[in-house]
């Protein structure tokens, strides 16, 4: 009886070890989904410009590390510019990557897939602004993505 119980314990322990090993193995290769912030610019009948903002956290780990304090947008001639203020919630220096994607008035992406990830370093509890300019005058909406380095 004792021997059987022991071997069952070993089986359970073995299974647990396999599960942990598999989890670690997967985690080693996975890329993180991160934070997404969107801003859409609209004009009312009087011609006043406004920006609708929305922030989505897809990654709870990142939510504890970073905060999007503010999103602003302005026009440089007919081209949309945007700025996001990010704040680190951590006391250590953290590396991130970010990229902007741009959409036109009908929600179609401009130069689809052409954007590149840019590195960003946030020192402990530091707030930093990142800026981007739309590729052309069609842009009305942007999406900011932030993730941990791959």
């Amino acid at each position: 009886m004792m021997k059987q119980k022991l071997s069952r314990n070993v089986i359970v322990a073995g299974m647990a070890a396999v599960a942990i090993a598999a989890l670690l193995g997967l985690a080693g290769c996975s890329t993180t989904a991160g934070v997404e912030a969107t801003g859409k610019t609209t004009w009312d009948e009087q011609g006043a410009r406004s920006l609708e903002k929305n922030v989505v956290f897809n990654n709870s780990g990142l939510k504890g590390d970073i905060q999007i304090v503010d999103i602003k947008s302005a026009m440089a001639g007919d081209v949309m510019r945007t700025q996001a203020t990010l704040r680190s919630k951590d006391k250590d220096t953290l590396p991130f990557q970010y990229r902007f994607e741009w959409y036109d008035g009908s929600g179609l992406e401009i130069n689809s897939g052409a954007g590149s990830w840019k590195p960003l370093i946030l020192y402990g509890r530091e707030a930093k602004t990142i800026q981007a300019v739309a590729p052309d005058s069609r842009a009305r909406e942007f999406k900011l993505k932030i993730r941990e380095p791959d």
Partner: peptide, 30 residues
Amino acid sequence: VLLTAAVIGAFSLSGCASTMQYGDAGSAKP
């Protein structure tokens, strides 16, 4: 059990061994 664990463990690790795949052209990994 130990043998099975070792084999499965090795397989899960081999997920990170040499592979060939398309990468992100916009990747910022130095």
